[in-house]
Amino acid sequence: MKKFLQDFKAFAVKGNVLDLAVAVIIGGAFGAIVTSFVKDLVMPLIGAIFAVPDFTALSFTVNGTPIMIGAFIQAVVNFLIVAFAIFVMIRLIEKFKKKEPAAPPAPTKEELLLTEIRDLLKNK
């Protein structure tokens, strides 16, 4: 049991787990911002264009069962905005990352043999 707890502690304190926890918290806050953006800005604009004040009220009935198409439309718009925002954020991060110079190519067999011959001639 003691070994199990030590292994769990080593796992929980690893940088990747802590990074993931921070990402989840920031992602939740970012999700709230995007939800507000969609709910309070985008959907009213789309609603004004289509003369429907609230998309969640859009529905139709099939055999007496209401199909809430407005809620689905709102969820799709929310997803597209979140996906686009994450895409833009990742592109910006990649652009600002310092690119490491590529490692020089490995010497060919001929170069290795010539280097070896050169070193042998130097030593004589």
Score class of each variant (00 low, 15 high):
residue 3 K to M: 12
residue 7 D to H: 09
residue 49 I to N: 03
residue 8 F to G: 06
residue 73 I to T: 05
residue 120 L to D: 09
residue 119 D to Q: 14
residue 6 Q to C: 11
residue 119 D to A: 14
residue 38 V to H: 01
residue 72 F to N: 00
residue 19 D to G: 11
residue 77 V to S: 04
residue 23 A to G: 05
residue 57 A to D: 07
residue 4 F to S: 07
residue 2 K to T: 12
residue 46 I to T: 05
residue 108 T to E: 11
residue 79 F to G: 03
residue 45 L to E: 06
residue 49 I to C: 05
residue 23 A to N: 01
residue 36 S to L: 06
residue 24 V to Y: 08
residue 5 L to N: 10
residue 80 L to S: 06
residue 118 R to V: 04
residue 7 D to G: 09
residue 117 I to R: 09
residue 41 L to C: 01
residue 105 P to F: 09
residue 20 L to F: 10
residue 8 F to E: 13
residue 33 I to L: 11
residue 7 D to W: 14
residue 101 P to G: 14
residue 6 Q to K: 14
residue 116 E to K: 15
residue 98 K to Q: 13
residue 124 K to E: 14
residue 76 V to C: 00
residue 100 E to C: 03
residue 7 D to N: 12
residue 96 F to R: 05
residue 2 K to Q: 13
residue 2 K to C: 08
residue 73 I to W: 03
residue 24 V to N: 00
residue 2 K to V: 11
residue 75 A to T: 04
residue 6 Q to L: 15
residue 12 A to K: 07
residue 52 V to Y: 06
residue 34 V to M: 13
residue 64 G to F: 08
residue 17 V to K: 06
residue 17 V to D: 00
residue 95 K to Q: 10
residue 71 A to C: 00
residue 81 I to K: 04
residue 63 N to M: 13
residue 86 I to W: 05
residue 57 A to T: 09
residue 24 V to W: 05
residue 3 K to C: 09
residue 43 M to N: 02
residue 69 I to T: 14
residue 36 S to C: 01
residue 16 N to D: 15
residue 52 V to P: 02
residue 119 D to W: 03
residue 56 T to A: 13
residue 54 D to W: 04
residue 85 A to N: 01
residue 8 F to S: 09
residue 66 P to G: 06
residue 43 M to F: 04
residue 78 N to W: 06
residue 25 I to E: 02
residue 43 M to C: 06
residue 49 I to K: 03
residue 69 I to C: 03
residue 124 K to P: 07
residue 92 L to C: 12
